[in-house]
Design a protein around this nucleic acid. Structure first.
Lengths: 344, 344
DNA sequence: TGTTCTTTTGTTATCGATAACAATCGTGCG
DNA sequence: CGCACGATTGTTATCGATAACAAAAGAACA
């Protein structure tokens, strides 16, 4: 019995000698069929190789079980981890995920949202809080749950789970000040491409500013990557006022920068400090543990997914969650003990 | 004019004073409407904020524009790159992608395929050629294009683009033999979880076997990761017959293993050789370039996507493509020149 | 000017389910 | 014994599009 011609609900109904509604009810597990007939029907459906059509089902219900998720990139394990954190919870709730990579481009995100809306998704998940102008307007009107993830804002489109990037940067800045660093440099990619990184940089700058220290900046015109860090660090080391600590956009760049420093014959952390962001797993196997801020990616995903599932089911409790982060003091900055905090 | 109550094709038709079929034709860009009315209709549709329903459209056409892609994991940049390679081509052809991570679990893949079929996807993409038994049977019958990616087989379900992992392993084995290595060890994860890695291992073993050398094996019960390589290398170095070259499942494990060697006070490549697989970008910024096999991930994805698009449009030319790979001699194995190939 | 062919436009059935309401069946109770 | 109510089952309309066929309008030609 190959399903040469796909069997549909009607065929099952005929075979079972019941109406299609009974089949529909039986297979969806909703109320309104006796246990006896439900068992008979679902047995028959299995046996006949019945495959329901989500297209038809979703059309009739005017909503699908698709959760559409947009992230900037999958090359950064961070987003893979966030997605991983969401997926299990969503799958458990019978929701399918569809993933887009916007490549840090708001217009791409906007175009994708337009396309996704044609699928009547159960919910929409966006990375960050910076969107193309038309997007906000579009989504605030819709009654579909929208989750903005990874960054926080006082006025989310709908729901929001993330970390406070400005505070993260400031915290790290204070930490570095405490360790005696006085010539910090930030190494990132082209201004504005990664708004979260910009906010961290601003936080960092604000911390140093309180000590009347200016944060130097080096920008590489590339995607956030090992290579970008490598190049950025190389350029930073050539600055007239050579920095005593390099704060990278994230761990990836920091790893790439590390080799630049070694190539330049600089000892880490003796001659120069290196700081990343995220606390990737690779850190667990490095000889010299990177000083970084550890972000709760998987937990963030899971939290967001739980809130989404609740919202989809009509329960709307909390709307905004700021997740805690933790500085990993690491070994690529000098430890407090040995710091002789030289005035400059 | 917010689309409080979603405008549908009928509303546009009424507004334009034409039938819904004219609107349908006009907006899809199919033949059968004059240029004048097409322009008028699509202008009106824009203005009214009309958003077509893919659910309805796909139901009527009995096929969606969804291409469903299953990969083992997104934590490995390799799969992110393959997906990246496909996406652009698919998007260009008006196809949407939906991604699953099976976590190297055939049953999860099988369950996902069942779920995806309910969406009438335009095509299905699977990683590798090893599937749950029911999957092959299920898909060979279906008339939907199916692409098996990343590995090659003489008898694909439908289409197949990949590399010959056995040959890759054998090639590397010969290379290492030529460099004088005589005590090789393979470091992987639990047997069978990653079938491609097993085939590479077998290729490696077969090369060494021809020189009457046995390949030792170390298995770590974990996901392929930096940490797994770290632990595997540590264990390999403790073997009674200490290996002179460690062949890791992939670059990730090799990077993790590198620190083990350094921690053990072994010089690379002086005391021990390290070999990876894939040629990840990180290799471009390492002080010591990893000896590895470079795989054409993005190109593979692009090639597969092109073939899929053709198949979806009804053109079916080539069905099987084996992509070339290249050994990157790197600096974590001794160079031919300095090798004194000591007999053991 | 009438006929035929080609374009353009419209009508109706259909895709495969679910929602809302209608009908039937038992059973408890006065 | 008969009525009413809850549990089960069925009927019809609908979701929002496309396919297939039908009709009308122009263009070309004798």
């Amino acid at each position: 019995m190959q399903d040469r011609k796909a069997v549909k609900i009607e065929d099952v109904a005929r075979a079972a000698g019941v109406s299609i509604m009974s089949v529909s009810r039986a297979l969806r597990g909703v109320d309104g069929v006796s246990e006896a007939t439900r068992a008979r029907i679902s047995g028959l459906a299995d046996q006949m190789g019945y495959v329901p059509s989500r297209l038809a089902g979703s059309l009739a219900q005017a909503t699908s079980n698709l959760v559409a998720i947009s992230v900037p990139t999958l090359f950064d394990a961070v987003f893979a981890e966030i997605i991983g954190g969401m997926r299990e919870t969503l799958l458990h709730a019978g929701l399918e995920t569809i993933i887009e990579t916007s490549d840090y481009n708001p217009d791409r995100e906007a175009a994708w949202i337009e396309r996704m809306i044609t699928w009547s998704p159960a919910a929409l998940v966006l990375s960050g809080i910076d969107h193309a102008p038309e997007v906000e307007e579009r989504l605030r009107g819709a009654d579909m749950p929208v989750m903005e993830l990874w960054d926080v804002t006082a006025r989310p489109i709908d729901m929001n789970v993330g970390i406070d990037h400005f505070a993260v940067g400031r915290e790290m800045g204070r930490h570095l000040l405490g360790l005696g660093y006085r010539r910090p440099a930030f190494i990132g990619i082209t201004q504005g491409r990664d708004p979260r990184a910009e906010r961290r940089m601003q936080g960092l700058a604000s911390a140093f500013e309180q000590a009347d220290i200016a944060l130097q900046q080096v920008r590489v015109d590339a995607a956030p990557s090992f290579e970008a860090g490598h190049e950025g660090a190389t350029r930073a080391l050539a600055l007239p006022d050579r920095p005593d600590v390099l704060c990278f956009l994230n761990d990836h760049l920091a790893f790439g920068g590390q080799t630049s420093c070694e190539a330049a014959g600089l000892a880490v952390p003796g001659d120069i400090g290196l700081v990343g962001f995220n606390g990737l797993n690779i850190n667990n196997v490095l000889r010299r543990r990177l000083t970084t801020t550890v972000t709760p990616r998987a937990l963030m995903g899971k939290t967001a997914a739980r809130m989404l599932v609740a919202a989809i089911r009509g329960v709307r409790a909390e709307k905004r969650v700021t997740m805690p982060v933790m500085i990993d003091a690491g070994a690529t900055t000098r430890s407090r003990l040995t710091s002789g905090a030289p005035g400059d």
